[in-house]
Design a protein around this nucleic acid. Sequence first.
DNA 1: TATGAATGAGTATTCATTCAT
DNA 2: GATGAATGAATACTCATTCAT
Lengths: 205, 205, 205, 205
Amino acid sequence: MSGVQSPWTPQADRRSLREVKRDAILRTAARAFMKRGFHNTSLDDIAAELHISKPTIYYYGESKEILLADCYRVALETLDAVTRRTGDPSANGRARLWVLIVAYAEAILSDYGRCLTRVPDIALSEPLRRETRALKRTVDDRIRTVLDAGVGDGSLCATDVKLTAFAIAGALNAAALWFDESGACTARDIGQHYADLFTAALSPA
Amino acid sequence: MSGVQSPWTPQADRRSLREVKRDAILRTAARAFMKRGFHNTSLDDIAAELHISKPTIYYYGESKEILLADCYRVALETLDAVTRRTGDPSANGRARLWVLIVAYAEAILSDYGRCLTRVPDIALSEPLRRETRALKRTVDDRIRTVLDAGVGDGSLCATDVKLTAFAIAGALNAAALWFDESGACTARDIGQHYADLFTAALSPA
Amino acid sequence: MSGVQSPWTPQADRRSLREVKRDAILRTAARAFMKRGFHNTSLDDIAAELHISKPTIYYYGESKEILLADCYRVALETLDAVTRRTGDPSANGRARLWVLIVAYAEAILSDYGRCLTRVPDIALSEPLRRETRALKRTVDDRIRTVLDAGVGDGSLCATDVKLTAFAIAGALNAAALWFDESGACTARDIGQHYADLFTAALSPA
Amino acid sequence: MSGVQSPWTPQADRRSLREVKRDAILRTAARAFMKRGFHNTSLDDIAAELHISKPTIYYYGESKEILLADCYRVALETLDAVTRRTGDPSANGRARLWVLIVAYAEAILSDYGRCLTRVPDIALSEPLRRETRALKRTVDDRIRTVLDAGVGDGSLCATDVKLTAFAIAGALNAAALWFDESGACTARDIGQHYADLFTAALSPA
DNA sequence: TATGAATGAGTATTCATTCAT
DNA sequence: GATGAATGAATACTCATTCAT
């Protein structure tokens, strides 16, 4: 409000500037990895896209491998966050599944989400791969939990919950392979279509 | 029978021997690509696994890229072949979908099939990638055709056939990502489970 | 004494503080170079050890190369100083050689001395290397001078003074390669042992 | 002699050709390392000197580090070999010491020997460094053994055998630092001078 | 005084590919 | 048919150094 800036603002600015820059690098990497693949993307490519020099990438990140792992991490943490709050807990399983699928779809169709599904984790060394896979499992489990709830309250019908969960996740992940962000269909559209599809298919007769 | 060998036999033998060797190279490549990724697999690795020298690979193949394209081709031609004959044409759509899914699953869970789903086609240059994607579309269309038939004869119920086809293909392809050939579940098991799952979900109320 | 500080004191303090800091950097560099080698020691390493930032090193020094040259210089100036006063000038050559060797050993076994012997001067560019070698020669000459004196006054016996001087310097320098500062033997111990050894070996029959 | 070449010759030729080439690379590396230092010598430099491409070096060697380790190894194995046969075993210690010093000097003043003394072994990783140092110790012990023999048979006089051995080795190694192969003094000359020097100094009064 | 940020230059290493034999 | 030898091209990563603040 006043014309005088708080003396702490610059500090905060500087810190946030660093975050902003790091985010820019990460997002650029994610998009490049997702579009051209991990090994076909050189750090030079990423640097050029950002109009910075290659060593600057190292100033903000540790290595190309960790860059990828961090892309995975952002994607998985987002997936984790959006699938945790799957709508009104008092709603029945089917309603919650619908919300979950839409949220999952939107997350998996983001830059980071598509990086996660399109770039095979073989590019990672053992420890990082293990960590990534653990996170993946956590997210996958969330689908199963909602399915279980739906079967429990009678709003859903599934003979093999585990496999059904895999099928749903698989279908959504596959969508990330052909999703075109410049196309007519938005991520939300696709999510809603899939949500309709699966809730319909899993409704009790 | 006689001590004299037919003069054609050696010719035939020689040709078939060449085929056998080429197949060995291709299958070894497919398994290596699928397990360790395209870029993490060097021709040295493949050569070492076959106890041959690296140039020998070039004697039987054109380049690493074409090796991958050929792996894709084998996978897609197999998928094409097994999905073309989707059981008794006089059967209804649901029955044919069941058969189709099992066949698709078995093919996609083979060495070549997993190579196809696990190795992103970005490794291919434009023309080969285009060709591969065209083949993929052909195979995917086959699912849609059977779904259409089922909807037509009333044995299946699907509001959005195109999306449903994508979901089925996506779920099956995703299975190829986690399928473990040394596990307890065979490809046929998984195929039947998915077939049961989808035919049940798509049965009219 | 009075409550008023001399206005010059801060000046002096400031200057000496700068010296102190510069010395800390130089000594840290010397120890790092000597332990891990010149090229295996990055300025980051040195900065980290001192809990300062890398540019601060440049504030107190010109470049990594000059840092090394200065380490050499400190070592050589110390050697020069301690070998100049080789005991009672009225004593005979043998007695003075004994004192010289002990002094040389103590100097060459210091942090800077070991940096001098362990780090090859190839890391330096021509002009600085030339300068360094000139200083080295000066110091080496001092051994020869004392040997000459001893041969002159009959207290030492050496057919080839030049080579003998090289041998003594070589033996002492080599000790700097295996000297362990945390070991039981102090630099002075080693110096005295060598002094005994060489004066005995060079005593006239 | 005859115009007919043995059919094995080509084989032998090929094998020996490989050895010859590898030796050329190793010797070139040794000379470059010794003259310009390990880190100031790039594999490009070595390749250029041999008129080959950089990857060719990798075809014949494993890595730059192992190249250096192999230079050390050649030097140390040569030192080991020449110091093992220290002349007529029936001769007295002093005579054998003389022979030993000349042999040691010639070996340490060779290309590989100078590489050994001039290039600090810090460039090596732990395991290789450990191995190298063990070999060094073996060679150093040989000097002590001959000294012991001389003291035993009364042909030599040394109060501290261990230190004397160090001094001899140190003096010879130091010679490798200033030895100029294009100078007037040959390695053999220097060796003989040192041999004279030390046997004279260690002769009983 | 001191440092966060940035970079140019350099380097070891890998690998698909070729070719003479 | 098969391979030893060789290489061009590419790339991740390091580091001394600079500069605005």
